[in-house]
Design a protein around this nucleic acid. Structure first.
Length: 845
RNA sequence: GCCGGGGUGGCGGAAUUGGUAGACGCUGCGGACUUAAAAUCCGUUCUUCGCAAGAGGGUGCGGGUUCGAUUCCCGCCCUCGGCACCA
């Protein structure tokens, strides 16, 4: 340990030490509890950004904390290395995507190591390497076997900028998750994974993780899954005897107000009977119009004008027997429910708008309960009434409370054979086909005689060819590589063609953290026993942007893995923490925006590490804001972090020689002075605070507590040369606790100071350093300053022992001179005494 | 429109879940050291009145419960995020 703190020297020194000693290597152990600490794996764009720094600093703080507490910690990292930027580099600059990716990884790995994040590098994984993606393909085959992977032609999200399809989650809000541009609909044949089979489980199993996941993530997933309870109802077709239109409704109680059935333009009934539709001349152009409208990218949130056309067909309301027209409407979605709705303009806002526009009748069949006794309001409706109430104009159902009627009516419908209670979901199956090169090939072969044939497991991996010209035009680049797609059928040996689409990269990240447990396994994606030891993940840390993409997919994937028999649980992640984003001021404005190259407000982590040291950067990032909040980048704040580290360093330097002679046992230290007792009290109070705050992920207040302890050490009035044995004991206790508890936030300087304090170069882990033990007795104050209020206003303070009786406190408060100026001559109504807290005297007059 | 999270000094944020509001840090201001600067250290920094001791006000707004409310209840306002023709 040198007198002066030079971050670059000690950071290099300890990084080398960690590497040489495999300090963070992990293996299953029976004598320690395990802790799996995971941060979302990065895409190797080439450069670490501050969001990464924040993510990994948070994770590393937890990993160190758990390690020092005696947990067997798994803390791995890898690369989400398939994806479009590599392909863009290939298109624009002719670089081989694999070479580009590997170079980027090499650079970013160096950056992570300069940050000193405590990863077990022996477990590093790479999504783009065949040793990894063969298991993506293996999972696909398992799903195919179970009917969970299927292919269909359907309108899918298409990003014209990225030139590929997107899943619904990736096109949420009508914009592409990667490039931010509006998406279109296109009819494309795609592979889908049947995530909807798991909709109910994805919803129900949330109770297992409710305590550990942020409310907003669960809410977003709940909304995304969009469960809704209602009923299917069949409207018989007048024109086609025996045929019916099935609608889905959540408001069966409004059925007597149905004045039409409205179907989606793509509804099969229309296509099946197009030549028998009375208004065919109007219907056909309308369908063309609606399809064109849907194919067009539209601004997010923009609601189309409601358009419709009367087909001239008629259907029968199964409850009332009434005849109603069948319309086609652009606002009815084929993808949701049954693609057909009953139109109840009186009690649904959309139907009201539609009916008003086309002059359709509007009928009131629910009367408001809030309106008191008037159950049959008169006059035309000015707007849809969407609340529950009492049914009116509804034949024998009139007078029934509409919320109660719902269940009875769906039972009635079922008994009479024209409907049933039903649940629908907004969630759709996960489209995973991508018309791109840089992804895992889908292991399927098309044979003219055998049809769709899965690649035999023994033939995995289906490797990506290495020297492909990627032009960015046309269909999937693999479709222009005959050596890739020309194959023989594994079943009949005949001529066949390989699937040329690749998988969505979210497949790779759906199960990667299982692979970390067993990264070199060549027989399975992960060994069952080893997975059972390490997983589920105890703490996961990442950005909120993956709330309904990655975090939903990985829950789904885990359930499939459970069904295959690979893992014994339902949920992959016990606790999730979503960090806030890192923002920086846009120059010349007052706007704080997410750091990014394009906005010109990015900060290069390497520059910061060079200027302040990795420890100061990490400490600042963790101290400046609670982990879930936005973090505003301010260099003055890193200065503050470095100042604090320097102060601690100076305390250690100043005392290290003297405390080497401190007695080993407390009993040999003799009597502690009031000053020494006070320091020890602060030390133990700090231990208690840190432990509680760390468990709650309150890293900012943890650091604040360490600063307080450091300040107290600075205020310790005894000089090292003149210190009694007891003083040295107290100071050593404080410094050791401070250094160990600082480790999660600034590990390099902590290692250096630990070496300085102990004279050992074995490192914290090598010397079995342990999180300090809390001693409640030492943390208790000898005397307390108790605030005294008169009528709730602070008027004075008294000194009391922590175990003072209520009576003694009351007497002392009433006797206090300042208090008496407020109580003299007044009637004391009541005295409230809260032991160890306060006294409040209530007076009158 | 629906769902969810928030409103505390100049700023980031604390407050042991009903008990001293503003911990810790940043910034600013004043000072020490220095020929000077950097670095470091000390003081000060919610607000009003006051030379001071002290007194009043104060956690988005208005009510309420309580000896006591940033915290609990009722009614508003503002703001951020997500979803959005989902029947």
């Amino acid at each position: 340990m040198d007198e002066k703190y030079f971050p670059e020297q000690i950071e290099e020194k300890w990084q080398a030490h960690w590497r040489a000693t495999d300090a963070f290597a992990s293996a299953p152990k029976s004598d320690q509890p395990k802790f799996y600490c995971l941060e979302m794996l990065p895409y190797p764009s080439g450069f670490l950004h501050m969001g990464h720094v924040r993510n990994y600093s948070i994770g590393d703080a937890l990993a160190w904390y758990k390690r020092l507490q005696g947990f067997n910690v798994l803390h791995p990292i890898g690369w989400d290395s398939f994806g479009q930027p590599a392909e863009q580099a290939a298109i624009k600059r002719g670089i081989n995507p694999r070479v580009w990716t590997e170079d980027n990884i090499a650079h970013m790995r160096g950056q992570l190591q300069r940050l000193g994040i405590s990863y077990d590098w022996s477990r590093e994984i790479f999504a783009h390497r065949p040793e990894y993606y063969r298991w993506d393909q293996w999972f696909f085959l398992k799903m195919f076997e179970r009917g969970l992977a299927y292919k269909k032609m359907t309108p899918v999200n298409w990003c014209p900028t990225c030139e590929t399809t997107l899943s619904n989650e990736q096109a949420s809000g009508g914009i592409c998750w990667r490039c931010g541009n509006p998406v279109e609909k296109r009819d494309i044949v795609q592979w889908f994974l049947r995530i909807t089979d798991y909709a109910e489980q994805l919803l129900n199993d949330m109770q297992e993780i409710e305590a550990g996941w942020p409310e907003r993530v669960l809410t977003m997933q709940r909304n995304w899954i969009g469960r809704s309870e209602g009923a299917f109802l069949d409207f018989a077709m007048m024109d086609f005897p025996g045929e019916k239109i099935r609608v889905f409704t959540t408001r069966i109680d409004t059925i007597y107000g149905a004045t039409a059935v409205v179907v989606a333009a793509e509804h099969p009934l229309i296509a099946a009977h197009v030549d028998k539709i009375p208004n065919r001349d109007a219907v056909e152009p309308f369908i063309v119009l609606v399809k064109a409208e849907k194919a067009q990218a539209k601004a997010p949130g923009a609601e189309e004008e409601k358009l419709g056309v009367d087909t001239g067909l008629r259907a029968i309301n199964p409850f009332s027997g009434e005849e109603v027209p069948v319309w086609i409407g652009n606002y009815v979605l084929m993808e949701y429910g049954t693609g057909a709705v009953m139109s109840v303009p009186g009690h649904d806002e959309r139907d009201f708008e539609f009916a008003t526009k086309y002059g359709m009748p509007i009928r009131r069949v629910i009367a408001s309960l809030a309106a008191g006794n008037e159950v049959t309001p008169r006059g035309p409706m000015a707007a849809a009434m969407t609340e529950y109430g009492v049914m009116i104009n509804s034949q024998e159902w009139s007078g029934t409370r509409s919320d109660e009627a719902k269940r009875k009516m769906s039972v009635f419908a079922q008994e009479h054979g024209f409907g049933e209670a039903a649940v629908t979901y907004r969630l759709r199956d996960w489209g995973i086909s991508r018309q791109r090169f840089w992804g895992a090939p889908i292991p399927i072969i098309y044979c003219d005689s055998c049809g769709t044939v899965p690649v035999p497991e023994a033939d995995l991996p289906v490797r990506l060819p290495d020297d492909v010209k990627i032009t960015g035009v046309g269909e999937s680049p693999l479709a222009s590589v005959p050596e890739f797609f020309n194959v023989t059928c594994p079943t009949c040996g005949g001529v066949a063609r390989r699937e040329t689409d690749t998988m969505d990269t979210f497949v790779d990240s759906s199960w990667y953290f299982f692979r970390y447990c067993d990264p070199h396994n060549t027989d399975a994606p992960v060994g069952k026993e080893i997975a059972a030891y390490w997983t589920p993940v105890d703490q996961y840390i990442g950005g909120i942007d993956h709330a309904v993409m990655h975090l939903l997919y990985t829950r789904f994937w885990t359930k499939v893995m459970r069904d295959i028999g690979l893992v014994p649980f339902n949920e992959p992640v016990k606790r999730l923490m979503t960090q806030g984003m890192v923002t920086n001021l846009i120059e010349g404005t007052n706007d704080w925006k997410r750091m990014s190259k394009s906005a010109g407000n990015g900060v290069d982590p390497d520059d910061m590490i060079g200027a302040f040291g990795a420890d100061s950067v990490r400490l600042f990032v963790l101290f400046a804001a609670p982990v879930e909040n936005e973090l505003r980048w301010q260099e003055a704040g890193i200065d503050g972090a470095k100042r604090f580290l320097q102060r601690v360093y100076r305390h250690v330097w100043r005392w290290r020689a003297s405390i080497a002679n401190a007695p080993g046992e407390e009993s040999a230290a003799g009597d502690f002075s009031a000053e020494a007792r006070s320091l020890r009290r602060k030390t133990h109070q700090t231990i208690a605070r840190l432990t509680a705050d760390m468990d709650k992920f309150q890293l900012n207040t943890s650091i604040a507590a360490l600063m307080e302890l450091s300040n107290e050490l600075g205020d310790f009035k005894v000089e090292p040369g003149a210190a009694a044995a007891s003083d040295l004991y107290a100071v050593r206790e404080a410094l050791q606790a401070l250094v160990i508890m600082l480790t999660p936030f600034a590990p390099h300087i902590a290692e250096e100071m630990w070496a300085g304090l102990t004279g050992s170069n074995a490192g914290l882990l090598g010397s079995q350093a342990k999180w300090p033990a809390f001693n409640a007795e030492l943390a208790v104050k000898e005397e307390l300053e108790i605030p005294v209020q008169v009528n709730g206003k602070l008027r004075s303070r008294i000194i009391a022992a922590p175990d003072a009786t209520k009576e003694a406190m009351e007497a002392a408060a009433l006797a206090d001179e300042k208090v008496r100026t407020y109580t003299d001559g007044k009637q004391i109504v009541k005295v409230v005494v809260v032991p160890q807290r306060l006294v409040n005297i209530v007076v009158k007059g």
